Computed example of a mutant assay.
Amino acid sequence: MLKRRTFKRSSLKTFSFFLGFAAVVWVLVQFSKTYTQLIEVPLHYINAPLDKSISDEKPDHVDLQLQDNGFSIYYYKIFNPGLTVDLSKARQTEKELVYRLENHLTEIEEQLKIDFEKSRIIQEEIVIPFQFKKEKMVKVLPNIEVNYAVGYSADDPIKLKPDSVKVSGPEKIIDSIITVPTKSIKLNKVNQDLEGTVDIDTSNLGMLSFYDNSVKYFQEVSKFTEGSAEIPVDVVNIPDGLNLAYFPKTVIVYYQVNLKEFEKVGASDFRVVCDYNSISQGDDYMVAQIAEKPAFINNVRLNERRIQFVIKR
């Protein structure tokens, strides 16, 4: 009995081996034969004209009649390589871009790894409908945070060049766009003039085409110093006949100024006022405000803003 089982198992293994071998040979023979097969090749478009909106109804594939062995056809069916269409090389009509395939056979052969002596694309040309986009200039706003080194600052804000860029796109979206920011950047311990390039933030604006994707930024940075001046407090809008006493009579104004212009600043350039009409009922103080100051200074502050007062009878 044991000998019979051994014989049967051995025969089954032998039979399975030859069956598998025959199957492999059959597959190799079949795949070595030449076949003609129609295959859909996906299309990918690049370099669309900035002033045109490509229609969603554009062709998404071309039909490739492939005459080759089974291995090549199987490769195309599994990996399905696509064809990239460069729209900058298409001919423009009134409402369409026409990409004539016979004018680009070498490029197509390289992309698809085919030989047009054995294969051909059924379509003669790819026709892509389009609509003209609306264009306008959009203001670019700097999204740049500058932290200056101690003793340094700038008289003027950061400037961009160009400060506006041309944008094109569907009319509804274009009409809703007023400004566009740059990408966010942060500059620390700045102690010299700024100059660089920053990209425009086009996130969530994929329907729009930007003729410039970046702008230059610059700013003059100077050595600054802090100055101060003692300024008398001027109370305005005191009712006629009201005897008002207040303290302090003067306050100190602190400010930051370009070192080159430090000598231009004097106490007479400032005016500090309190408005009697702004006093709330029950208050015994007024709030001092800087009413006048030189335009070229910054970081202006007072040592005291509360001005105490009493009404004498």
Rank of each mutant, 00 (worst) to 15 (best):
L2I: 10
K3L: 09
R5I: 10
K8Y: 09
R9C: 04
S10L: 06
T14Q: 09
S16T: 06
F17L: 15
G20T: 14
G20M: 15
F21P: 00
F21R: 06
A23E: 07
W26K: 06
W26Y: 11
L28W: 03
F31D: 07
S32V: 01
K33Y: 05
L38K: 12
L38P: 01
I39K: 05
V41N: 14
P42M: 05
L43C: 10
I46C: 03
P49N: 11
L50T: 01
L50I: 00
D51F: 11
K52T: 11
E57G: 07
K58E: 00
P59D: 15
P59T: 07
L64D: 13
G70A: 12
G70F: 12
Y74S: 05
F79C: 09
A90K: 06
R91A: 07
Q92W: 06
Q92S: 13
T93W: 03
E94A: 11
K95L: 11
E96K: 15
V98S: 05
E107W: 00
Q111I: 00
K113C: 04
I114C: 12
E117V: 15
K118P: 01
S119C: 04
S119G: 03
I122D: 11
I126C: 08
I126L: 11
Q131V: 04
K133E: 02
E135P: 01
K136S: 10
M137N: 10
V140P: 11
P142G: 07
P142E: 05
N143A: 14
I144D: 01
V146L: 09
A149D: 08
D156R: 01
K159S: 06
K161H: 06
V165H: 04
S168K: 05
S168A: 15
D175M: 06
S184Q: 06
K189H: 10
N191F: 02
N191K: 07
L194D: 00
L194C: 04
E195I: 00
G196W: 01
G196Q: 02
V198A: 03
S203V: 11
L205K: 13
M207Q: 14
M207G: 04
M207W: 06
Y211T: 03
S214L: 08
K216F: 00
Y217D: 03
E220G: 06
V221Q: 08
F224G: 01
F224V: 00
E226N: 14
G227D: 04
A229N: 04
A229Q: 05
E230Y: 09
P232A: 04
V236Y: 05
N237R: 08
D240E: 15
N243P: 08
L244C: 14
L244D: 14
V251H: 09
Y255M: 13
V257L: 08
N258S: 12
N258T: 09
L259I: 15
K260Q: 03
K264R: 14
G266L: 04
A267N: 14
S268P: 02
D269H: 15
F270A: 10
V273M: 12
D275M: 04
Y276W: 13
N277L: 13
S278N: 09
I279G: 08
S280G: 11
Q281E: 14
D284W: 07
A288N: 09
F296E: 03
I297A: 05
E304R: 12
E304S: 12
F309T: 02
K312M: 10
